[in-house]
Design a protein around this nucleic acid. Sequence first.
DNA 1: TTCATTATTTGACCTAAGTCAAATGAATGG
DNA 2: CCATTCATTTGACTTAGGTCAAATAATGAA
Lengths: 188, 188
Amino acid sequence: MNTYLNKINDFITRLDPETLTALKAISVEKNFKKGNFLLRQDEVSKRSYWIEKGIARKYYLNDGKEITTELYFDNDIAVSFDSYCLQNPSREFIQALTDITISQTDFSAFQKAKQQFPKLAILDLMMTEYYAMWLENRLFQFHTMDATKRYNKLTEDHPHIVQNIPLTVIASYLGISLETLSRIRAKK
Amino acid sequence: MNTYLNKINDFITRLDPETLTALKAISVEKNFKKGNFLLRQDEVSKRSYWIEKGIARKYYLNDGKEITTELYFDNDIAVSFDSYCLQNPSREFIQALTDITISQTDFSAFQKAKQQFPKLAILDLMMTEYYAMWLENRLFQFHTMDATKRYNKLTEDHPHIVQNIPLTVIASYLGISLETLSRIRAKK
DNA sequence: TTCATTATTTGACCTAAGTCAAATGAATGG
DNA sequence: CCATTCATTTGACTTAGGTCAAATAATGAA
């Protein structure tokens, strides 16, 4: 999987100067304080966020309970995907879990740029493919691993996670209750 | 969601003749008998399958148990996604559940065609976006609905499903045991 | 038809994880 | 430095859904 991220990075670094300039022209750097929202429920996701530094998450509410669908670290792209694609109101929130720096790219400007610079369409495709594979893998983990295994896998993949993120968030990301997570951790 | 499928169809019908010809040139129609495999585990997914008529499914084995990850009907695209993108051996099987007719498109030919006809890259992007949204929705259903609700939703979305597909397949698609599915059906 | 094989149902019991409630620990503003 | 609020743990109990085993359909080939 990481192989594919490298491929994407290679692709970006090898872009011709014009395309690269066009991409930079539609991106802006911004900062958010811990706890603040990059996107709220019911807003239309008009931009994507490249996380330069810090941690963020995406979540939605179900029966008043938060379900965290994704955690973002350095170099991840944060976006409420269906809201971004369809330009519909989002059911998800995107929130900074630490102070963060992001580079945001405007949706409609990117749409136009893709027409003019076909390589940007290819880039968009590769990133979307990466996200789809990530989603497949997440489904796979839910189907084949119990709560303990999922937790172990997560801490293995992101050892720094526990230091920085409240357990409530981790539990909801793993699809288990806070209490169950606490018990899993107690066993070790 | 269906809105997006319409958008994709519109896009295809409005393609310029050259692009359309290029697309058709790399596609071939084929037939498979019920029970036969379009793709087996460990094979590399070198082509995508547009289902013209019939039903198919994608599944993998876990502890000797089948987990069905997707059901395909008319006009769906069947592909082992990560195997197709990365050209790695597939962990999934794709199998005809009825006699089916498909139109298959070669991976590497499509890659080349995308370079020459940028609109094909856009088309690929739209289809991939659709698949990612579908995956998000499937995850959403697993997180927010219990077995009964998932079954009701499935029969609602695909009323013809029960007539044609063995319950074992439906159960594994819903992520429940055959016995649980049987009990859910008995209640109604 | 009939037998054999496969699909589905039903019953009895088990288990991972959830819920509710209360206790303890940590962190932060005043 | 205390008090209040938030985060985490622990305990007791419940539950959705799984497992294993056996009983019925249903299907299909000879």
